[in-house]
Nucleic acid binder design. Structure first.
Lengths: 208, 208
DNA sequence: TAACATAGAATGAGCGTTCGATCTAGAATA
DNA sequence: TATTCTAGATCGAACGCTCATTCTATGTTA
């Protein structure tokens, strides 16, 4: 679809529709965080979004489409973050410094609740699993390039598989924080972030 | 209630009831894994357990009680594992060797699905959160003792807080695997386990 | 007026839970 | 031993409710 040049601006234009769509997604994200994908009803989402239940179906085919959109939106932020990391610069210090911010992001309770909900859903819903796995593969690819370059610059000559394993360990270290912040909300964020930085530093020095 | 000495063995005895209860829990665990806590209906659970829906309510007050029992049962296995680890012996090598088994356990997809479901539920259900957090506190306490002893034996003199942070990092590393096995089911289990062993080894040498 | 935005009631399915009826097997009695 | 009694085990229909979704009617604006 190509956009017409002078943007005709009907009452019913595309930007208003997009805003309405986002309004639904924001409400849905909040409801899903508080009640889970299956615990949040369309009635509740519509109420939170201040519109009628029926109207939601003008923007989404069904509830699963809303879930898929939320999942895609959440993963997209992850993808841009990984891309940023990669674009910034490939030095070790930059990765490790960025990691501290990443730790704080992961430790946000509301965000963690939604991310956990997504992966739990992926474990049983093949459609969601596909979305999640494609995004994860992209992240891993990016991270592998970054880590590969860091390793090469410190004299290591790793196989792609070896780099892939390090990516897994790094990812595990980060994603585990989503569970930690639920299981132990009182943990010392700053101190844990520091220790994770050290752990990442050590990880980058593992034998090939 | 004191047990009568010669075990009267009525038709309706306690062991049969316990077996029936466990039969329900097994069915429920399977259903929860496949459909989530809120996606699995009592009708489905009763069918899986080969009994009538109404009969389930002779053993559990309501659905939430079933969920709580599943959660408690799952966490109990975690607690005994931590206790075993602690009882075995407090040398570094034992911890690291045990870790490899732990990694494989965490990478089991069916088990991971249920554990993720539990933490996701804990993020929104205060009752479940309490159960999960109490179990986690116990695990952390045990792990802190073990790690504290290892550290002391290698000449470090850590504050309890420092040990607590190391426990957090260790836990994060492990629990992250629950997400990794869903997001990237194709990962090389053996190789990742080896790299995690190295990471734990490095963690135990972190500065105080 | 034409075309879309929006509301809200209606629909049928499925939910968790309750409840009375039936079954079953040991206890009691004869 | 044969019969009746009893109480828990078990069933499955029924209840009230909420769900996701659809439909029809009414606003709104270019």
């Amino acid at each position: 679809m190509q956009t017409t040049e002078q943007t005709p601006q009907h009452h019913h234009d595309a930007s208003r529709a997009a805003a309405r769509r986002q309004q639904i997604l924001n409400a849905a994200a909040q409801c899903f965080r508080e009640h889970g994908f299956h615990g949040a009803s369309i009635a509740l989402i519509s109420k939170t979004a201040s519109m009628s239940p029926g109207h939601i179906y003008h923007y989404f085919e069904n509830k699963e489409a809303i879930i898929a959109a939320i999942v895609a939106q959440d993963l997209e932020s992850l993808l841009t973050l990984t891309a940023e990391l990669r674009a910034a610069c490939n030095v070790r210090a930059a990765l490790i410094e960025r990691a501290a911010e990443g730790v704080f992001d992961q430790l946000d309770q509301a965000g963690a609740a939604l991310k956990l909900e997504i992966v739990a859903e992926a474990a049983r819903n093949p459609h969601i699993a596909q979305i999640v796995r494609e995004a994860d593969a992209t992240c891993r690819r990016e991270l592998a390039i970054t880590i590969g370059e860091i390793r090469r610059s410190t004299g290591h000559d790793d196989t792609p598989a070896a780099v892939g394993e390090m990516v897994e360990v790094l990812a595990s270290l980060f994603e585990g924080l989503l569970l930690r912040t639920i299981r132990n909300p009182g943990l010392d964020r700053t101190r844990v972030a520091q220790r994770i930085q050290i752990a990442i530093n050590d990880l980058l020095d593992q034998p090939g």
